[in-house]
Amino acid sequence: MEGEGNFDYNALWKRINNGEVLLIDTRLANEYTKKHIPGSVCAPYSRSGWGSAIASYFGNDVGDVAILAPNETIAKAAQEEAGKNGFKVVTVISDGMNGWESSQLPTAEMKEITPEDLYEKSDDYTVIDVRDPFEWSSGIIPGSLKIPMEELPAKLQELSKDKKYALVCASGSRSQSAALYMADNGFDAGNVIGGMSRWLSRSLPVEYE
């Protein structure tokens, strides 16, 4: 327990893969996006109803649950909340990804690209704008593919696993989920942090429909 010392990460990894334990990652979404344990679910801890939210999402009869937290404070709070909501918490990791990484087990990672970097290396990337069509009138990054978020799953087969994709939305929040979804499906996909808000505020070039 507690993600230190002799904690057996290999055993946990096996149990996750066999579907015997549900690993809930309580870190903030952007920490999860940068690096997480494959198969874990992203459920950032918050003081307002986190336990009931995960209970209504998963149901609390999911069997054994493991919790991954960024520090002891959040580990303790999440464990308590999960317990109160009927979850059977069997393992708590309280040092984020540190212990996991030192055990050399697989991780899932997603890149973050600043608008400035993207602009400089625009030849390397294919940009996908996942905003809703009405938002495109504020300007799009030249050459972007326009694929609204909800159409992305259906369009995946038209995309290439040999290309590097940069996903953009208004603020970098929706595109984070989209990039993560693509990365989990085997694409080289990164999130444009700050989104069009940062792109536009840096006066980087846009084209209009």
């Binding site: 903030l28 950032p44 801890y45 709070a77």
Partner: peptide, 11 residues
């Protein structure tokens, strides 16, 4: 402090 930061989405 830790919980407020977490609620606001920052580490």
């Amino acid at each position: 402090y830790i919980m407020t930061a977490q609620d606001l989405g920052i580490t």
